[in-house]
Nucleic acid binder design. Structure first.
Lengths: 192, 192
DNA sequence: CGCTACATACCGACTGGACGGTCACTGTCA
DNA sequence: TGACAGTGACCGTCCAGTCGGTATGTAGCG
């Protein structure tokens, strides 16, 4: 068993492909995101790419799983460092999603993912699955469901605004949105 | 000047093409939205289609202009029938955008527009231009800019949620979001 | 330990179809 | 007659996915 084996572990190859695919998405955008472009950037051939991801959609699924997992992790990490339990998860979701300004690469990747989800609805479902994992298992949070939803909608709207360049939202404004939820003061009218 | 002229006014043809293009978008989705499919549905040929819209992007621009104009109108209409001046425009934006549940056709068209904007950023700018027209020219509204922005982000987030099927938001919850803005009670912390 | 058999990673030229866009031409009006 | 709506066959490109083949592992077996 040689440490310099020529045949790598499949998981390594898959990981490399996804990593490079994200680079291509970041640099070339949706129109330049082709299997050939991705393969050209990896150390493996297009054949190997198709061997590990049997279709373009399968590759996008892999990318979305990767991004979804990372995003879910960062939401949980934000929640873990938030001392205030009230509305913690919703706040963490907003922080992890749009707290810091996007790089041009982030925007480009966001656009590719967005286009993919718009063209292939199953990909949108797959993303939703990842994000759904976060809000589960926190009955300890006394925040009203409506308020929590409100903050998530704000986060999503802000994300879309950043991706499409709709509104210029300052850091102060983002900060203000984070302060919306306070214990015992429901924002929306019909709390349960 | 014959009323049954065989050569129609160009504007009529353009209008028909855009109308039929939206039908194709509604029924076939982003992957089925091709120039051939659009031409096949109109009374004119593909050549005429390309005569009026010299490229696919030009056609999408025409569709976005159409949708943007209609949407801006319906926002203004909502605003006009709202007796409460405080936050009127922001509320109207939310109402016009996501007050009533989307039909599958609406969702499909939304996805096509979304994909187009994600792939071709200039289209996103074009949409923004239409929507920007609404918030202009209302210095009479005393609502804080931050609160107005908040409601717009909620509306956008809700729109995206409807398009991607992320959250199931009840009519009651939508109603509650409309009640967020009340005079003299800023929601966000740092009102000007 | 070889030897065989099979599985899997990988290669890259090729294909087949989709699709955006062109063009030479006709018909119709002012 | 010039300008323009409109035609539809055609073209060129792009690109996802295929396929025959090679290289490199591993498992069984005497």
């Amino acid at each position: 068993m040689d440490t310099t084996t020529r045949r790598r572990a499949p998981d390594d190859t898959r990981a490399e492909i996804i990593e490079k695919a994200l680079e291509v998405a970041a640099e070339l955008g949706a129109s330049g995101f082709t299997l050939d472009a991705v393969a050209a950037r990896t150390t493996v051939s297009k054949g190997a790419l198709l061997h590990h991801f049997p279709s373009k959609i399968a590759l996008l699924e892999g990318m979305i799983d990767h991004l979804g997992e990372m995003h879910a992790d960062s939401i949980l990490a934000e929640a873990a460092r938030d001392p205030e339990p009230y509305g913690r998860n919703a706040r963490a979701y907003l922080r992890a999603t749009v707290n810091e300004p996007f790089t041009p690469q982030d925007i480009s990747i966001g656009r590719v993912v967005m286009a993919a989800c718009a063209i292939e609805p199953t990909l949108a479902q797959r993303w939703n699955t990842w994000i759904d994992k976060v809000k589960i298992d926190d009955p300890s949070d006394p925040v009203g469901a409506d308020d929590a939803l409100m903050l998530r909608l704000i986060a999503d709207g802000l994300w879309m605004s950043d991706i499409f360049g709709t509104h210029a939202v300052s850091l102060d404004q983002r900060q203000a949105l984070l302060s919306l939820l306070t214990p015992g003061h429901p924002i929306t009218a019909n709390e349960a």
